[in-house]
Write a protein that binds this DNA or RNA. Structure first.
Length: 428
RNA sequence: GGAGGAAUGGGUGAGUGGUUGAAACCGGCGGUCUUGAAAACCGCUGUACGGGGAACCGUACCGGGGGUUCGAAUCCCUCUUCCUCCGCCA
């Protein structure tokens, strides 16, 4: 949510900055609604003052045992006028709210201008691409014979786009979760969180998944609960409606969770294998920072996520999103893309964003810089550290060997009882 | 699932219809005192919106929503959350 006061003062600047991300701000509608709202408030406050003063006078008359019936009738009329104005105010405020809550965040000045991912800018490449003396396979061809991934049976349980891992494949998934959490909690200073895996509509509004993106979510029938699309939702909302002590900032949380996404509108995209799923595991990093620190904290957040790939010796690149490719709430975003030999391409394993005060305003998360000072909105950030299923794909594709087996990266071996190679095992 | 109780400012906690935006205490800020600190004492100490150059002024907010009334933290209805006891349960 953008700052209403900012919009009032700078509606044309906001219009131009939003145009750079492909959003057309209807400045006329905004100014009309905002003006209506203000007129009603001014009138309402005047009426309330009349009523308040009148009530005091009436109380005085009553104490003096004088006739109050005329005064009371007069005030009764005022009271009705107030009710009417309040109703009018509710109506217009609802309209303003609807209008403003569907405006995306303003891009940070450092973000490259462009309307699509083609204007994204590669920031750096790290690690060497693996070389094979054979044709490397994609994970959907490589894994079923090893007995670690069953693509057909998963569809029986639910339908398409659900993972079914087995044996060493299942253990590899679990090892990755522990590996990632250990590094972030023990070395990068994040506190581990196990959040609810469902969230209510207020929480989803706070992170901007509602109201605009409801079609991306799975909703639990007859309740106000949604399956979380990312741990960002519950973890960011830990502090909804809170005032934090400024001395505690930055606050850094790491949370493992399954993620559920309807993937509406991605039919035909990544249909093979388990790259794009309705359910996947992810370790998410979330930060609450002072406004002046958030861009530096974004850089270190990306670094924390990159560290996982470095330890696993996987080649990757970091890309900064153009204005048009950023998500609704972000002011600045980086993607980390890991090299997948089976697709001969870099593919996303992490997206790290600074939301500045956009989510904090929606979720009402404030901090007090120092005792006695005014409260301000925090800045929120988050990033995948990393998407576990996609890291799993990267490992099997990058560490595949000519005989169809998969080597286990050294950093991960302590998490799988020292196992060094995944060999074919009995299918489920 | 059944029966009770509760929700007030950063915290604890008074307040059952009319200067109550809200006592008191704790915490915080400023000051007096002190070589310095502590203690003691004094003052200040919520948020949002609107008006004004500013000191200030106005309005709203006592879990959410609705109602009664000229007037609600206070009365009524409803929802939510928390606590206690009983039952059930991984």
């Amino acid at each position: 949510m953008l700052d209403l006061a900012y919009l009032r003062e700078n509606v044309n600047v906001a219009h131009d900055r939003l145009a750079s991300r492909g959003f057309s701000l209807d400045t006329e509608t905004f100014q009309r609604l905002d003006g209506e709202r203000k007129n009603i408030i001014v009138e309402l406050e005047r009426l309330r003052q009349v009523s308040k003063k009148g009530s005091e006078e009436l109380a005085k008359l009553a104490r003096e045992v004088k006739d109050i019936s005329e005064k009371r009738n007069q005030l009764k009329a005022v009271s009705q006028q107030i009710k009417d104005k309040e109703e009018a105010l509710r109506t217009v405020e609802e309209k303003v709210f609807q209008f403003v809550s569907t405006i995306p965040n303003l891009p940070d000045p450092a973000v490259p201008i462009g309307l699509t991912d083609e204007q994204n800018v590669e920031v750096r490449r790290v690690g060497e691409l693996p070389s094979f003396d054979f044709e490397p396979k994609a994970h959907w061809d490589l894994c079923p014979p090893l007995g670690i991934l069953d693509l057909e049976r998963a569809t029986k349980i639910t339908g398409s786009r659900f993972p079914l891992l087995a044996g060493a494949g299942a253990r590899l998934e679990r090892a990755l979760i522990n590996f990632m959490l250990d590094i972030h909690t023990k070395e990068h200073g994040y506190k581990e969180i196990v959040p609810p895996f469902m969230a209510n509509s207020n929480s989803l509004f706070g992170t901007s998944n509602l109201p605009k993106f409801e079609e991306d979510l799975f909703k639990v029938r007859d309740t106000d609960y949604y399956l979380i699309p990312t741990a960002e939702v519950p973890v960011t909302n830990i502090y909804r409606d809170d005032i934090l002590d400024g001395q505690r900032l930055p606050i850094k949380f790491a949370a493992y969770s399954p993620c559920f996404r309807s993937e509406a509108g991605s039919y035909g995209k990544d249909v093979r294998g388990i790259f794009r799923q309705h359910q996947f595991n992810k370790v998410e990093l979330v930060k609450f920072t002072r406004p002046e620190d958030s861009n530096a904290e974004l850089e270190s957040l990306v670094g924390d996520a990159e560290e996982i790939l470095k330890r696993l010796k996987l080649a990757y690149r970091v890309v900064i999103h153009s204005t048009g490719d950023m998500s609704f709430a972000a002011s600045k975003s980086y993607d980390i893309e890991v090299w997948l030999p089976g697709q001969n391409a870099y593919r996303e394993v992490s997206s790290c964003s600074n939301f500045d005060a956009f989510q904090a305003r929606r979720a009402n998360i404030k901090y007090r810089p120092r005792a006695g000072e005014k409260v301000r909105f925090v800045h929120t950030l988050n990033g995948s550290g990393l998407a576990v299923g996609r890291t799993w794909i990267a490992i099997v594709e990058n560490y595949q060997q000519k005989d169809g087996t998969v080597a286990v990266p050294g950093a991960l071996q302590p998490y799988v009882d020292g196992q060094t190679v995944i060999r074919p095992e009995s299918v489920i």
